[in-house]
Design a protein around this nucleic acid. Structure first.
Lengths: 245, 245
DNA sequence: CCGATTGTTGGGAATTATACAACTACCTGT
DNA sequence: ACAGGTAGTTGTATAATTCCCAACAATCGG
């Protein structure tokens, strides 16, 4: 009785319809959750009346409702870190010409909570709300290394460069720690390189990470150290800013 | 029995903690919903286990969890309109130097589903997920006028310029229809002007609106017609793009 | 036009959520 | 330091709510 069944089922349904391309039907939902059609129908009806889901007028299939978008905004706008970091993201874009991102640790991954896009036509953008793995993204590595987190047990390979061996990663992170910044060299997505550093709050605790990412063509390996210098500098400024108050 | 009680209560709680600055305590939540502390505690516990809420480690108060952000992203990335409109938003920013926004009709208001920020230091930005009133924003007026929606019954005043009289608004919208674009002249926020046009899908139905907004200093009333020409042109291009398929 | 599949409503049974209570942890003021 | 108070988390029995079964409506495909 620790968990309220019908609420849990409703939440599971939200996750299911979120992932399903083009919405989901009641029957399929009922099967996935393991309940009767009628139960699923009523649960979805409740979600719909509160705006968390909506039913397509023609296909009768359910998809997520606008309420989740508004709630997400409430959450994001109430994050002090996000507010404080915004100008520094802009500074990163101005100085590097690449897209800048801010992430925090959530759900065992790096949750992107803000971004400023590159003005270039060809740009690497990871949408706000993405949860990226820790072991193969610059932001994730920064969070993991400087936040002293244990390495993930499972390390999925996304590209041929993804580090999947625990020992290799350990060595890699030791170097990351020494140099003070993390790099993702096409380990998560082909053709995209990232550089990131941790962000500390007033008590020296890692509260997030910021970094830039761009197409490998512009973000050449020779240019990475230069980018890293900028990211470290801006990251330090942001952490300094967070020291006050 | 049309509405599942415990699910509804859980959803209401999410809305409550979303709005509360600095989170909410169980006791207050229980009062607001009208249930016992124990019930509220268990409901919140369920929300927390699924990531829809989280409990502050020190204050024990509850706030929204990261799951809503990820769900929001799923919803947004699966919107064809958003994907199609993105390059046109960039084009608007390139050609006007002001911030560009994309909105759809949701929950009786204009729901901002994407934005591209202005490169200028002083910029007007309305975050993705905002639901703005229809009667005093350019995007809202565009949706309302060209989507042939009835005027809202209640028209709240946000600034001294906000149109609150139904007849005045009707005349204003008639002009909007004639000129083909909608303007918000500091009617929602002081110092911010917006220009917007509707977006049509392949069957000629209004599916959203795009526009630019900027500080009144740069977006002078003399410049509005010029901006409007650009917005109308880009809006037309986007609608043309949506005509195919 | 008919069969089939999908989504929505009724109603009885029983699981489940609820309120009450006791308990623990924390904070605050003296 | 201590006591009083407040806030949050467990037990537990009751009874209300939700669940499954079934029938029904509606849409789709052949």
């Amino acid at each position: 009785m620790a968990e309220i069944q019908s609420l849990a089922r409703g939440l599971k349904m939200m996750e299911l319809i979120a992932l399903a391309e083009g919405g989901m039907g009641i029957t399929e939902l009922a099967e996935q959750i393991g309940v009767d059609k009628s139960t699923a129908s009523r649960l979805m009806g409740t979600l719909a009346t509160y705006g968390f889901a909506e039913q397509d007028a023609t296909t009768r299939r359910y998809r997520l409702g606008p309420k989740v978008v508004t709630l997400s905004r409430y959450l994001l706008t109430r994050m002090p870190l996000r507010e404080q970091a915004k100008p520094f993201l802009h500074r990163l874009v101005d100085r590097t010409g690449e897209g800048a991102h801010l992430a925090i640790l959530a759900q065992g991954g790096a949750l992107y909570i803000d971004q400023v896009e590159s003005p270039a036509t060809l740009r690497a953008t990871t949408g706000v709300g993405t949860i990226a793995p820790l072991h193969c993204t610059a932001l994730g590595k920064a969070l993991m290394t400087f936040g002293n987190l244990p390495q993930p047990q499972q390390m999925k390979a996304f590209t041929a460069r993804t580090i999947v061996d625990a020992d290799t990663l350990r060595v890699h992170l030791e170097q990351t720690r020494r140099q003070g910044y993390a790099v993702d060299d096409e380990e998560y997505e082909y053709g995209v390189r990232c550089v990131a550093v941790p962000v500390y709050d007033y008590r020296g605790k890692v509260v997030g990470a910021i970094g830039v990412s761009g197409p490998a063509g512009r973000m050449s390996l020779e240019r990475v150290p230069e980018i890293a210098r900028i990211v470290m500098e801006v990251g330090k400024d942001l952490s300094d800013r967070l020291s006050f108050r």
